[in-house]
Computed example of a mutant assay.
Amino acid sequence: MAAAVLVVSFAFWKGDEPERIGAAAYALVFLGALMTPDSGNLSVPQWSLMAMDVVLLAVFLGLALHSRRSWLVWASAFQALIVTGHVLVAAHLRPPSNAFATVINMSNYGLLIAMAVGTFWAWQERRIAAMGSDNRAGPPRL
């Protein structure tokens, strides 16, 4: 949870609009998942969690289609892994509970890493653009 709070805070602090929208969507789904009653049985479909994860996937895909940010493609891929895990359980293919939990956890870490790296790149691009606009007048004339 600490990693999620740090990355979402970093995205709100230093990110551009796509990073902030992605971070807000992730934070809302994260909070919604915490408030959803958990059956504790990963072999039974958890429809509310699946619905939230599908909505988050749709947000990341929409942002990826309308933005030039490559981290959104990676975030979408990791979120698609999570949704695929839910679909496997819903289709009664019964993946082992440990494998399902591992896929969800590792995909969430991958998504957070993608968001952190994307936010860092956006921040650096903005700094470079700001430094470039300061030097447009050229060197001072003597």
Rank of each mutant, 00 (worst) to 15 (best):
L112C: 07
S48L: 14
L112G: 01
L81G: 10
W13V: 11
S43C: 14
V73S: 01
V44C: 01
I113E: 06
L142C: 06
F10A: 03
M106D: 11
N41T: 14
W47N: 12
I104F: 01
K14F: 12
W123I: 08
Q124T: 13
V54S: 00
V117E: 05
L81S: 14
S107T: 03
P18F: 05
S43R: 08
R126K: 15
D16P: 03
T119L: 02
I82Q: 09
A75T: 01
K14L: 12
A91I: 08
R127F: 06
V5E: 13
G40L: 02
G32A: 00
A75L: 04
L112D: 02
R69F: 04
W47V: 15
F10V: 00
G40I: 00
R20G: 06
P18S: 05
G22R: 07
A25T: 09
P96F: 01
D134T: 10
R94A: 11
V103L: 07
D38I: 10
L111E: 01
A114M: 10
E125I: 04
A99E: 00
A129F: 02
G32P: 00
A33T: 15
V5C: 04
V73C: 02
V117G: 00
L49Y: 05
Q46P: 03
P139Q: 07
A80I: 11
V83W: 02
A33Q: 12
A24R: 15
G85Q: 07
A24N: 11
L57N: 08
Y26A: 12
V117A: 07
F60H: 09
A80L: 15
E125R: 11
N135D: 09
N108H: 14
P95R: 03
N108K: 15
A77M: 07
R127H: 08
L31N: 12
A27D: 10
I82A: 10
A64N: 05
V87K: 00
V87M: 09
F100R: 14
R20F: 09
A58M: 14
H86N: 04
W74G: 02
V117M: 15
P18T: 06
N41I: 13
H92M: 08
S48Q: 14
L56M: 06
L63Q: 06
M52S: 05
T102N: 05
G118R: 12
F30Q: 08
S133D: 08
Y26C: 07
A58L: 14
V89H: 04
G85T: 11
G62D: 01
G118F: 12
V73A: 04
V87N: 00
V117C: 06
E17C: 02
L42I: 05
P37D: 13
D53M: 04
N105F: 13
W71C: 10
L81M: 13
